[in-house]
Design a protein around this nucleic acid. Structure first.
Lengths: 206, 206
DNA sequence: CCAAACATACCAACTAGTCGGTATATTTCC
DNA sequence: GGAAATATACCGACTAGTTGGTATGTTTGG
């Protein structure tokens, strides 16, 4: 059985992940989190110095869990780095399932509200986004070299993919549907195919 | 002289525009807004039924003021619709001046926090983003026809530009700098140039 | 036994929103 | 024209409930 002393902390981090994605950081109260996690306030402040501290830890928790998800995802299978990059973006489309709070990004949501008032949270969110982007750099660089792509850098393109994904989530929130998010990822895929001079079989819309 | 009875309302909407972009909607209290606008709570609730109502009106106010800004902007000058589209995106880069709260988007920020809890605000934000995107459609469609671009629609591409801009703002908030935003708009410009088969003179990075 | 992991009770500050009242226009009616 | 009626814009003290956080217990596992 799982050790009891991990329960409250982990349940609070999972509650934060779910509630903050739906309501935002400020609108999520400590009581909200305790209620959702099924723990008391004493437990909360035993594990976290403050609500801001929980925000930082939630960003780190998000980084850990998503890292694991992406590390074990099937998009690494293709032999060619360019194909792996496209497979990554197709995988991001597959992840657009369920309700909007289920597929949107915790740290993207949090950083919007905290970038000016809680630098610690902003830094943790930035580290999460950046480190995920950096997992793409090796493949992008290899593909760029193989295809002779110039005019930008692998790091810049990796960060651009994350910007597009974050923007896709905002549009999905505004429209209340994942459709627009998939559509904007398709534009990103089309960009990368054009940039690497590897267009899809047909450029006809579905 | 300006009629007295407009002051409080407009000053509150301007305060909302500035404060909410920096702190987010939830973290902005009614007292915050009154203090910033230099009005009393009585005036606030005279002009707005609730804080949520203020959010809706702030989105509409944002829509009005930005519409005016873009309508009077110089990017409409080029004779060719494709050139106008590129000029629009270059203009968006020019707007990336000042601190992060100065150039980011009010409705993109608000919709993140309210899409699930305040449908009225979400709808107002969505209407603002969509209507701005639609101002691009005529030029995009004309350029697509002139260049024989297929595989997507003018509406889809217009919404994609807004998604990229919203994502650029999130990245700027995370990194605390406009640089990444300009960088991601450059990727968008590169995409559109490739899609319309009109690459820049040189594909060399700056 | 003892420290870590909780639970309970509580607090001061803040929250959105209310309410009775005032000052100043504007309209109405003769 | 001018007094009365009415509408608009605003004020600021007040309230009921919520907020993040604390102080002081009790339980539990090794």
């Amino acid at each position: 059985m799982a050790p009891r002393h991990i329960h409250a902390r982990e349940r609070l981090l999972e509650a934060a992940r779910d509630v903050i994605r739906a309501k935002g950081f400020s609108a999520t109260s400590v009581d909200d989190l305790c209620r959702t996690a099924g723990v008391t306030k004493g437990a909360f402040f035993h594990h976290f110095r403050s609500k801001e501290d929980l925000g930082v830890e939630a960003a780190r928790f998000w980084s850990e869990t998503t890292s694991e998800l992406f590390a074990n995802a099937p998009y690494h299978q293709p032999a060619d780095p360019f194909d792996r990059l496209i497979a990554y973006l197709e995988f991001r489309k597959v992840l657009l399932a369920g309700d909007v709070p289920d597929f949107t990004c915790l740290v993207g949501t949090m950083v919007q509200e905290t970038y000016d008032s809680a630098p610690a949270i902003r830094d943790a969110c930035n580290a999460t986004i950046t480190s995920h982007a950096m997992t793409l750099v090796a493949d992008i660089r290899a593909a760029m070299e193989a295809c002779g792509v110039t005019g930008t850098t692998a790091e810049s393109l990796a960060l651009h993919t994350q910007a597009v994904l974050q923007g896709a989530f905002i549009m999905a929130k505004a429209r209340g549907s994942a459709e627009i998010a998939a559509d904007t990822i398709d534009h990103l895929i089309r960009y990368i195919r054009l940039l690497f001079n590897k267009p899809a079989r047909e450029e006809i819309p579905q």
